[in-house]
Design a protein around this nucleic acid. Structure first.
Length: 803
RNA sequence: GCGGCUGUGGCGGAACUGGCAGACGCAUCAGACUCAAAAUCUGACGCUGGUGACAGCGUGUGGGUUCGAGUCCCACCAGCCGCACCA
């Protein structure tokens, strides 16, 4: 062993050794732990220090579990289909297969620098036909269960990426990936009926150990609300307009009916004299971007000339069109209760309609309203319903309406079905054949996978047609049912298809007969700890839950939630901004590894701050971690050959360290673990200086505990202390509680809550003795005053209140 | 607009159930070693006043509860994130 900490030699040596003899051995007697990173897109820009943060954290947990005697599944793979890979390929003018492979090679090389315990025999690549065979198989199963269907409707269209988007990808009217403003395009597309799982996706959030933040984001996205549907007959017509409302208690206060510009059947309601106005209004609404429509708060509208009848009081209500009503939420029709909804209030006021209060906080008349009243209160102006409280009326009214045939109780969701097809090349072909006689027919399972054909031009088109549509020899096929000529579906699946189930595949990567065997799934899954960024809160994480529930329902998977515990690491920024190649602020781990070593960078990634919080990257602090590792190295070097018996103080420091580090790994408070190591080491070095050495056990315990964090230096020190096997076979140390009991404790002395001194007392000193002693110490300060109250918190504090 | 998170020295951040605020580290300063520098080691390091032991102030702001508040309650301010006309 050299006195100098030569990290380059050490890290190279042990990385090679672990590749030959992995420390994480399969052994079916041991308990199991599945620790998963969100797999990356192999983009051209490679990994930066932000990627390391999550990967280091999950590797620390994995290695810690190994030390605790678990066999750990800690795999890695590639989410290699989809827009980022394809756009990169287009930009660099290379086939996506070639650029993707190159990017995977590069990312893999960079990942090796982390020295995580990934088992590369279990690598998953979503673009591998052996993998996407099962991505397609899942789609076929969904089709067979009626969960995959085609529909023509106005869809979110990204003009830059030239493809349709799911609602989740277009939240806020902006494409989440490229930032372009989304427009609408009327297209026939494949949809997945995720709404059929809305309730279970909502309810089962209770089962999960996820942050409240992510659970809330999913809850809000699913957007369940309780209310009623009410049927309004159209005057002089057989038509009926059904509205959805969460306020059936306010039905008597309806001023008018408002329909979305895209309301189906609008045309039949428009009177000839109003047609020009309504048409113009609807045209203008259709050309507004969804962002404008969301941000223009000034109410607009047009009258159709028709009226409908309020079932509760027979009142005739004018029917209007207004773009503040959304076509795809509820029924696309809203009853305007001007007095109790701010938007309705503004609309009614602008067009001079009656504003009739039907809820009053005290049951009395409310006079002229300045704004809508949305609070609790008593029903007024509402016939038989008068006198009920709001909550009472909300509960009872739907049943009263049901009896009379006016409407019914119902629930509603914001969640929409998932737009699943993409007009792009680099994705899984949707395994469907279109036959004139048989309709859409799934490709028979024994013919899967439908291979993505090689193609000259994979540039996207403006027409909403996939680049695959031009490959006649691929498109033209025969119908698997009737054998007549037929055409293949040319759309591909979205990026999310492959990532919605990859965590299942890791358990049984090489299985050609099923997506994963039941045995393998039972053995490893579901995932015990899932680590990744929060940006997937309602995308990947919602889709993966949906897929898992579906696969559970068809008996392919033995559980219905994929990720038991989720940890979202904070983002690392540089100079306050997200790291990106275009901003030129990417901090590459490569140079830091070169200068300080992998172990130092691993520890520094943890030390920068609480792992769930964002933080701004600053290289300078890594010196502190590097110095710390040098100190530990020297400590072992100096004292390993002449061990001393441990003093009481030494045992206390070591056992305290064991307790603190263990608790903090369990709670993932990684930044404070590094502090604990540093503090303990400083104290041990003081002891060593005083006593002329340290015990063998102390040095060994320190080395073993350090191993998950700084594995190379720990392994080297372990061997230098004379051990044959790996430090990861040593077992995680257990604290000896008896060593943590100290004979004396220092307590703080306060007068009137202010710190006025300290004193050392025996750990089981009686209260009266402590107080007497405290008064002695503070004698000069309480002289001439009366002590009116004495507070003693054992082991902590004495507080004297004086007058 | 609604909802959530965050706010502590020059900086990153500690402080588990209310109990000694500022652990640990960075930067800075002083000292030791050195011909010198680097590295390393030792020490100082919230602010204000005082030569000084010491005193006063101090966890975004203002109130409150408590013997005692960074921590609990109320109101507000700022920053970030999410949702955003969801009837």
């Amino acid at each position: 062993m050299e006195s100098r900490y030569d990290f380059r030699t050490i890290e190279k040596k042990w990385r090679a050794e672990w590749e030959k003899n992995p420390i994480n051995k399969e052994d079916d007697v041991k308990p199991r732990f599945y620790c998963l990173d969100m797999f990356p897109y192999p983009s051209g820009s490679g990994l930066h220090v932000g990627h390391w943060r999550g990967y280091v954290l999950s590797d620390v947990v994995s290695r810690y579990k190994v030390l605790q005697g678990y066999q750990v599944l800690h795999p890695m793979g590639w989410d290699a289909f989809g827009l980022p890979a394809e756009n990169y390929a287009i930009k660099t003018n290379t086939h996506p297969r070639i650029s993707t492979d190159a990017n995977i090679q590069n990312a893999k090389r960079q990942l090796h620098e982390i020295s995580a315990i990934y088992d590369w025999d279990k690598e998953v690549d979503t673009t591998d036909p052996k993998y996407y065979k099962w991505t397609q198989w899942i789609f076929v199963q969904m089709f067979k269960k009626g969960l995959a269907y085609e529909q023509e409707m106005p869809l979110n269209w990204c003009p830059k990426c030239k493809c349709v988007l799911a609602n989740e990808e277009a939240a806020g009217g902006v494409h989440e990936r490229c930032g372009s403003v989304v427009t609408k395009k009327n297209l026939r597309q494949w949809m997945l009926k995720i709404t059929a799982y809305a309730d279970r996706l909502l309810e089962d959030l209770n089962k999960l150990d996820w942050s409240e933040k992510v659970k809330k984001m999913q809850t809000d996205w699913i957007g369940k609300s309780y209310g009623a549907e009410v049927d309004f007959k159209v005057k002089d017509s057989d038509e009926v307009i059904t509205v959805y409302t969460t306020r059936p208690d306010t039905l008597y206060g309806t001023a008018c009916m408002v329909l979305a510009p895209e309301y189906k059947g609008l045309d039949t309601l428009v009177k000839p004299e109003c047609k020009a106005d309504v048409d113009k209004y609807c045209y203008d609404a259709s050309t507004k971007s969804s962002v404008d429509r969301m941000t223009d708060k000034e109410k607009t509208g047009a009258f159709t000339g028709s009226y409908c009848i309020n079932p509760v009081n027979g009142k005739e209500l004018p029917i209007w069109v207004a773009d503040y009503v959304l076509a795809d939420y509820g029924t696309g029709a809203v009853m305007v209760v001007a007095a109790h909804d701010q938007r309705d209030f503004e609309f009614a006021k602008k067009f001079g309609m009656d504003i009739i209060p039907v809820i009053s906080p005290d049951g009395k008349d409310m006079g002229e309203l300045e704004e809508a009243y949305t609070g609790e209160g008593i029903v007024i102006n509402s016939g038989d319903w008068n006198g009920m409280t709001v909550s009472e009326a909300k509960e009872k009214v739907p049943f009263l309406m049901e009896e009379k045939g006016w409407g019914r109780k119902t629930v509603n969701y914001k969640l929409r079905d998932w737009v699943f097809s993409r007009q792009r090349y680099w994705g899984e072909p949707i395994p469907i054949i279109h036959c004139e006689h048989c309709g859409a027919v799934p490709v028979p399972e024994d013919q899967l996978p439908v291979l993505l054909p090689d193609v000259e031009s994979y540039q996207p088109t403006d027409t909403g047609e996939s680049p695959l549509a031009h490959i006649d020899e691929w498109v033209n096929t025969t119908c698997p049912v009737c054998g007549r000529p037929a055409k293949r579906e040319t759309n591909t699946m979205p990026q999310w298809a492959g990532s919605s189930w990859y965590f299942l595949r890791y358990t049984d990567v090489h299985n050609d007969n099923e997506l994963a065997s039941m045995d393998a799934l039972k053995k490893w899954a579901p995932v015990d700890l899932y680590v990744g960024g929060i940006e997937h809160a309602v995308l990947h994480l919602l889709y993966a839950r949906f897929y898992t529930k579906f696969l559970y329902d068809i008996g392919a998977v033995p559980f219905d939630e994929p990720f038991l515990k989720l940890f979202n690491q904070g983002m690392i920024t540089k100079n306050g901004g997200k790291m990106s190649k275009s901003l030129g602020n990417v901090v590459s781990p490569d140079e830091l590894v070169e200068k300080y070593g992998c172990d130092s960078l691993r520890m520094y990634e943890l030390f920068v701050g609480p792992p769930e919080m964002d933080c701004d990257w600053d290289d300078s602090g890594i010196d502190g971690v590097f110095r710390f590792l040098n100190r530990v190295w020297k400590m072992v070097y100096n004292y390993k050959d002449a061990p001393k018996a441990a003093t009481k103080e030494e045992e206390f420091i070591v056992n305290k360290m064991i307790v603190d580090v263990t608790n903090r790994v369990e709670s993932l408070a990684m930044n404070t673990i590094v502090s604990t190591f540093m503090e303990s080491t400083n104290k041990l070095l003081d002891v060593a200086k005083k006593e002329g050495g340290l015990s063998k056990e102390t040095l060994e315990t320190m080395t073993v505990m350090l191993a998950p964090f700084a594995p190379h230096i720990a392994e080297e020190m372990w061997h230098e202390m004379g051990h044959e096997g790996s430090v990861f076979d040593a077992g995680w140390p257990k604290a000896d509680e008896s060593k943590l009991v100290q004979d004396t404790v220092e307590i703080a002395l306060q007068i009137g809550g202010k710190l006025r001194g300290k004193m050392e007392i025996s750990k089981d000193a009686a209260k009266d003795d402590v107080l007497a002693q405290a008064k002695e110490v503070l004698a000069s300060r309480i002289e001439g005053k009366t002590v009116v109250k004495e507070i003693y918190v054992p082991g902590k504090i004495v507080n004297l209140i004086v007058k």
